[in-house]
Design a protein around this nucleic acid. Structure first.
Length: 421
DNA sequence: TCTGGGGTCCTAGGACCC
DNA sequence: TCTGGGGTCCTAGGACCC
């Protein structure tokens, strides 16, 4: 059996842990720049605040219902996530961390009753972190997802834990679940399925495999097997190295000068490069894009994008910054009002896989690795301690009007939290 | 005035090779 | 009139996830 454990309303719940007075009150968390709603407590959902709604459109609801509003505090959520995952890994070493707030646990070989174990997980995570979780248990990952959904939907009847361990329960669950809510069925496939007269998961499970293969590719076939109780999607216990790193942002206002846009893009490239170094890869390509407002022009946003292939693999911020500025220069149009930009680093190789070129000018600067190491060490201790000069913090300030504090990652805050307890 | 961010995988089709 | 067959690699675009 496989468990899918997931934190309820994760970001909103994290904020609540440190502000218990928010219990019972609607809580929402906003995206970068306080742009739109990205997490909601149950109370916030109940008063009709929808996922992704722009903050300015929900302002009236916020006021009327005395909603507690928070700017996203990803450092806090990341740290809470690490704690939850750590606790759950005690139940079985076979854990797949699927997202910041979810993990699969392979329960094979464990003798404890699933329901009982689910309650124990809930109890322990709740007591040790203050976060509420839901647990779904079933023979396959796709079914565990559904079990979890049932647990969430009927908290009082299930106690937030639901196990699909009989054929009867499996069929009942499939009859209950609309196709569009199946894990791996998105908007597009849902439309195809509806067009074919398929509206419930059990209809989908009975569709001819050839049809599924044709309409939904091999992934659809795996999914169908999983719903029929046959494992087809492997657990991924070992976290692979990432294949790309992106940093993209919407700006707080439109930028109309080269310097402003360049500063942002250089910053994004620097952040992404640090991630590449952290996983000890080298990078051979980047993509940079800039975009005008998604909402202003009636014919939609104008996007410019450019791929840059490096003459050698590198993880040096200095080298990557040069490449990204060259890329940006080739797409930047003076006079445009840019609202969003981003950088993706990808096409990684491992350092030992690469041989230097015979031509010196095609090789990376041999002194950069140690320089980067020194910079990373310093920046670990002093956030933003060293950066390339073309990054200028003064030119950019993100809106984070409702930011909570770094309760778990800043030593002063940690002491304060402890004293209050 | 104000509208998020970061990933992975699959497939078709083109380019190229022998 | 008749115009091979098999394979790899790469990329863009689509679809999906949280």
């Amino acid at each position: 059996m496989i468990a899918l454990v997931d934190c309820n309303n994760f970001y909103a719940s994290c904020e609540r842990v440190f502000n218990p007075s928010m219990n019972g009150r609607p809580v929402v968390v906003l995206s970068n720049n306080d742009g739109c709603v990205i997490a909601r407590s149950n109370e916030a959902k109940a008063i009709g605040i929808t996922m992704g709604v722009p903050a300015f459109k929900a302002a009236e609801l916020f006021r009327r219902y005395n909603v507690a509003v928070y700017s996203a505090n990803f450092a806090l959520y990341g740290d809470m996530s690490r704690r939850v995952m750590q606790i759950l890994s005690d139940f079985t070493p076979r854990q797949e961390i699927y997202s910041v707030d979810e993990c699969f646990l392979d329960l094979a070989g464990l003798h404890e009753d699933g329901q009982a174990m689910g309650y124990r997980m809930r109890e322990r995570v709740g007591r040790w972190t203050g976060l509420p979780i839901s647990v779904g248990i079933a023979p396959t990952k796709a079914l565990a997802k559904i079990a979890n959904r049932i647990a969430k939907k009927y908290p009082s009847r299930t106690g937030d834990v639901y196990v699909i361990d009989t054929e009867e329960k499996r069929l009942k669950a499939l009859r209950w679940l609309p196709v569009e809510d199946i894990w791996g069925v998105g908007r597009r496939n849902a439309m195809k399925l509806y067009a074919a007269g398929v509206t419930r998961a059990d209809d989908f499970a009975r569709m001819p495999e050839s049809w599924v293969r044709k309409q939904m590719t091999i992934k659809g076939v795996y999914l169908q097997r999983e719903l029929n109780g046959v494992p087809a999607i492997d657990m991924e216990i070992e976290a692979d190295k990432s294949k790309s790193f992106s940093v993209t942002r919407t700006f707080p206002r439109e930028y109309e000068t080269w310097d402003e846009v360049k500063e942002r893009v250089v910053t994004f490239a620097s952040l992404a490069a640090a991630k590449v170094r952290k996983q000890q890869s080298l990078c051979r390509r980047l993509e940079v894009f800039v975009q005008t407002s998604l909402y202003k022009d009636s014919d939609g946003p104008v996007t410019g994008a450019r791929e840059v292939r490096f003459p050698f693999p590198t993880s040096s911020t200095l080298e990557i910054v040069d490449f990204v500025v060259a890329g940006l220069r080739s797409i930047y149009k003076p006079g445009r009002r840019y609202k969003r930009a981003g950088v993706t680093l990808y096409d990684f190789i491992e350092p030992e896989e690469w041989q230097p070129s015979l031509f010196a000018e095609m090789n990376p600067n041999p002194r950069h690795p140690r320089l980067m190491q020194a910079i990373d060490t310093i920046n670990q201790k002093i956030e933003g301690g060293i950066r390339v000069a073309s990054r200028d913090a003064r030119t950019f300030k993100m809106n984070r009007a409702y930011l909570s504090r770094k309760y778990t990652t800043d030593i002063h805050e940690i002491l304060e939290v402890k004293m209050n307890k």
